[in-house]
Structure formats: structure tokens, C-alpha cells
Design a protein around this nucleic acid. Structure first.
Lengths: 103, 103
DNA sequence: TATTCATATCGATGATGATCGATATGTTTA
DNA sequence: TAAACATATCGATCATCATCGATATGAATA
């Protein structure tokens, strides 16, 4: 048993901690699943198909972006978000190999 | 864009929804990381190394178990938990291939 | 520069979750 | 059956998060 409960969380888990928390919310899952491959969407587009207020969608997008799941780039007045596929693939790959090796 | 925001969450995501929520909590991550490969631990052992009350540890173990991340089996007075490695590998494998294909 | 538009941030409220001690449930053993 | 032990559940409290409308920030355009 690993008795040092309060030790630092291992690196592959540290990165994914925010991702887990971000994807633990159903609205954020639905937002993520609104994206088609390679697609970019802005707040207005997502707010339109969602059941949430614009400011609420903006909040969830911030959480997803800070977790690394989304990338944002301003283009004129709009800010376009896209799925950070490479990051997510890397994260889940690390978790998978951590699972294989240590758990 | 997938405009049917309120549609059913795709199957590979539905199963993992609870896993994400469960692993989004740092205490539950620490509990999971207390297990060594193939090891079985009971509430008392985990409560001893953690900073939480026994009832709180019990609560977190319930969340992890209901999410599928842990399996529980009673053995006399104690209830032993172990990491459901196969389930987690399956889940993260599904998420990875969903990522590759649809996002 | 003033206006319009898109998004972010703020402040307040309500809901959900974490936490604990106390109590209940279930199991072994005297 | 009574006592001791391990864990689960209950009830209350506290903290965190989701949510919204209103306001602020930033960018394009008249």
C-alpha cells in the first residue's frame, strides 16, 4: 500500500485532474460533443443549441479551456474554440499506461 | 456542428461520465493511488493513511464503486476494495477511440 | 469617436457535494 | 444471545459550483 496519502499526485494524474473535473459535468460533456472533427465553434453558436444562458456557456468553456480540453483563438469579434485533440489523446494515453503499469 | 445538444450522450461517454465525476475529486484520486497493483484494501486501512474521517472515506469509496472504478467484496467483518482495472482500461480505451474518430 | 456586436467578468442566489459525529446494519466470536 | 468490531447510512453543516442578469472589456464599423 502506498501510505503517503498526502504526497504529490503523480505527473500523469496531475495534468488530468482538471480534465476529469471538467468532463465530470454533463453540460460540459454535451458542449464537447457538439464539436465535429476539426470544427471551431464560438460561444454564440453553442449557446444557441444549448439550454443555458450565454454567460453560463462562457463559464463552462472557460473551465474546459483551463483544463486544456479546448483551445481558444480570437478572430475579429468572435472567439473560436476547438477541441484540443492532441492534448486529450496525450492525457488519456498517459492515464492508460499508468493504469497498465501501476494499478 | 452537432445541434442536438440535448440528445442522449453517446454510449462510450455515458459509462465514463460517472468515472470522470468520480476521478475529478482529489481525495478520490489519492484513494485510488493508494492501491498497489492487484492489492485489496478496506476502509480502515485507507482511513488510517488519509486525512479524512472513516465515514467520509466510506462515502468516497461508494462513489468510486458506483462509478465502476472499484470493486468491493466482503470478507468476514471487513469489506475489501480493489481497483477494477479491466473496467477502467476498457473505459479509457473507448474514450480514446471516440476521440480518434469523432473529435 | 460613438455605436454595435461578441464575449468575459461580476455579484447574488440556489443547488449540489464534502465532511463529520452519531446511529444503524451486518459479521464474528465469546 | 450479547459483545465487539467494521462499515454503511443518517442528519446537519459548510463549502464549492452552476446559474443567471447586469455590467465591463475588447473589436469592428459607421
Amino acid at each position: 500500500m502506498n501510505k503517503n496519502y498526502s504526497r504529490a499526485i503523480p505527473e500523469p494524474w496531475r495534468d488530468i485532474s482538471a480534465v476529469f473535473a471538467a468532463l465530470g459535468d454533463e453540460h460540459r460533456q454535451r458542449i464537447l460533443l457538439s464539436f465535429e472533427p476539426g470544427e471551431r465553434l464560438n460561444v454564440g453558436q453553442i449557446a444557441e443549441v444549448s439550454t443555458l444562458a450565454r454567460s453560463t456557456v462562457s463559464h463552462h468553456l472557460k473551465v474546459l479551456r483551463e483544463a486544456g480540453a479546448l483551445l481558444a483563438e480570437r478572430e475579429g469579434k468572435e472567439i473560436y474554440f476547438r477541441v484540443n485533440k492532441v492534448f486529450l489523446q496525450d492525457i488519456f494515453g498517459k492515464v492508460t499506461s499508468y493504469l497498465d503499469t501501476f494499478l
